[in-house]
Nucleic acid binder design. Structure first.
Lengths: 158, 158
DNA sequence: TATTGTTATACTCTATAACTATA
DNA sequence: TATAGTTATAGAGTATAACAATA
């Protein structure tokens, strides 16, 4: 078939590891902040952006969803007071999503448990060199995939 | 916070890599076999089990879903002729899911494109030592998480 | 009593295309 | 004409608890 056993194993391990991790995360985030995994990621992504703000379309691309899907979640997060949407001054078609203080507060509330779970679930079984190697490889793969996957705007065109 | 930048980066890379990969997979599987990622995994898991058969509860655990969720998908796959359900001879409460010839046929139809995509998306950016290291680390993490996550029966009890 | 699988039900999420407005 | 975001709507998937049958 052209892809050796070792690689197939690695692929399935990636998928299953991520599924299991996500199951644990979903529980933790629900418990600590009554928030979904996806919404946590949206807030986390916003929080690390300059001034906590990002254009809707760019935000959609980082989380892979269709724009309508992002609108759906943005509406929910906005109702909960965790982000707000502002018109862009430079391009009036654009909307900028901004994380609120309350949104940052929720992140702070949820992050300690989240990070503890990441450490426990993902890094406890690895020593330092293995951790380095994993980080290096995953970063390469992620960057490669980013280039391969069309943006939400590109997908829409076709 | 106790978890260094490198590890947080690796964690986010895992999540994003898997999301991007899944987006590509979903398209490929839909196109080549009109099947979802989850249903592909159910069939693939069955196909690699002895005699292509597995107890419903065990199958649910490998794919992480609730039992009712598995019943939902098993019903769809059965309607499509891709698996069948048989009563277990040893325990009459149990149901055994068995992949059909048609199910194996669909896997064969879909696998070449799938494997090509795995190679292109996941392994093209890695050299051999990096691939080895990634496989080793992900396998350790996966096994560790398997032990951490309660089975569907255990989750039900609580 | 405990376990297996199913069902009913309500809910969340997703995806498409149509729509408005700005560029 | 192309792009940004929203909306309407329809469909897929999910989770819970209640259920019947068996251990």
């Amino acid at each position: 078939m052209g892809l050796d056993e070792r690689r197939i194993e690695a692929y399935f391990a990636l998928t299953e590891a991520h599924s299991l991790l996500q199951l644990l995360m979903e529980e933790q985030l629900k418990r600590d902040g009554d928030i979904s995994y996806l919404q946590f990621f949206l807030l986390a992504r916003l929080a690390q952006a300059p001034e906590g703000r990002m254009r809707m379309t760019d935000l959609a691309d980082t989380v892979i969803h269709s724009r309508s899907g992002l609108t759906y979640h943005a509406t929910k997060l906005e109702s909960a007071g965790l982000l707000r949407r502002e018109p862009s001054p430079t391009d009036e078609r654009s909307v900028t999503a901004v994380i609120t203080d309350q949104g940052r507060g929720l992140l702070e509330q949820v992050l300690p448990g989240h990070i503890a779970l990441v450490r426990q679930g993902m890094f406890d079984p690895l020593d330092d060199p293995q951790t380095e190697a994993l980080a290096d490889a995953l970063t390469l793969v992620r960057n490669h995939l980013r280039a391969m996957v069309p943006t939400s705007a590109e997908r829409r065109r076709s």
